[in-house]
Write a protein that binds this DNA or RNA. Structure first.
Length: 323
RNA sequence: CUCUGAUGUG
């Protein structure tokens, strides 16, 4: 069962929910009984792909087989309500789990907090925070990062910093996500200096910046007219063995266009295939197309209509459409 | 072995 569960989960995480579904019925036929992990995996997968009816069917089935939904099941369900912004539904599920004698854990509260943060309802987010403490559930790094993100998105970076200090005071260690969140907050507040200081601090604490950290830095620097610094950071990325995604190049190209360096942007773009940059992996929006559009706009803005026209032809050839 | 937080270019 454990092996099956691992395979099911990995199939789902890669978006092959139908294959997982098939494997699920196959294991059933072979007489391998699904357990609570199996059901939770499938329910979560259906939920995160919006297949609500499949999810409820799984729920019914597990109950029929006398497998009782546990805290993980409820957390997954609460999360799907939360992601749709249906906080009252999420709260009802929370009440129901308590009614059933299931004890909410840190993840339950973190999920609810995130839901309120997403809707900019920071007071209620804090109320949930107080509630969890009152119930004896300890906030963790994710709890604080979630709240900090809420404040940053609400343009209240300084309040985010207050939480940042509070978390260390009570023994929660800030991780890469925490730092990345704050760095973005400061960049959006056009405070490049503090953002860079935080970046140095995270590195000095042996937290390695990842591709998200870098993309945020690049975009923030470009938006604040610091193309030079962005290019320095970019060099650093190329040196480290991090696999730079095509979005990173898109950000730089966009920054170059905005700074009037349309030629350099074009050169960089032409060099992309040589660098073995990984393109999209079956995702929705096509980054390449976005870059083309960025370049066209850049050329147009600087009155190079001919090159722009040429670019559009080329993208048509490549099967893209200009917007 | 299953559930929660940060990036997506006008």
């Amino acid at each position: 069962v454990v092996i099956y569960n691992m395979i099911l989960d990995s199939l789902c995480k890669h978006g092959h929910v139908d294959d997982a579904q098939n494997l699920f019925s196959e294991m059933d036929k072979k007489g391998i009984a699904p357990n609570i992990f199996t059901y939770n995996t499938m329910i979560n997968a259906y939920c995160s792909f919006g297949r609500w009816s499949d999810a409820t069917q799984m729920l019914r089935e597990m109950v029929e087989r006398k497998i009782t939904p546990d805290v993980v099941t409820f957390n997954a369900l609460i999360n799907t309500f939360v992601k749709e912004g249906r906080l009252s539904g999420a709260r009802e599920l929370y009440d129901e789990m308590i009614w059933r004698g299931i004890v909410p854990n840190t993840i339950t509260y973190n999920t609810l907090i995130d839901g309120y943060c997403m809707l900019n309802r920071l007071n209620e987010a804090n109320q949930v925070f107080d509630l969890m403490v009152r119930k004896g559930v300890s906030p963790d790094t994710v709890t604080f990062s979630t709240l900090i993100n809420g404040y940053c998105k609400a343009k209240r970076v300084e309040d985010g910093m207050v939480l940042f200090h509070k978390m260390t005071r009570i023994g929660c260690v800030a991780d890469t996500v925490t730092y990345t969140t704050l760095i973005q907050g400061f960049l959006r507040a056009n405070n490049v200096r503090v953002a860079m200081e935080l970046f140095q601090e995270m590195v000095s604490r042996d937290l390695s910046p990842n591709i998200m950290t870098y993309n945020i830095l690049l975009e923030g620097l470009c938006c604040n007219g610091k193309l030079e610094r962005a290019l320095e950071v970019f060099k650093e990325m190329e040196k480290s063995e991090m696999d730079i995604d095509i979005y990173s190049y898109g950000i730089i190209i966009h920054g170059m266009c905005k700074a009037g360096k349309v030629e350099e942007a074009w050169d960089l773009f032409c060099g992309l295939p040589l660098k073995g940059v990984k393109e999209n992996e079956g995702d929705q929006p096509c980054p390449r197309e976005a870059i083309y559009n960025t370049l066209v706009r850049g050329h147009l803005r600087y009155h190079d209509v001919n090159t722009a026209a040429e670019l559009i032809k080329e993208m048509r050839r490549g099967g893209f459409s200009a917007d």
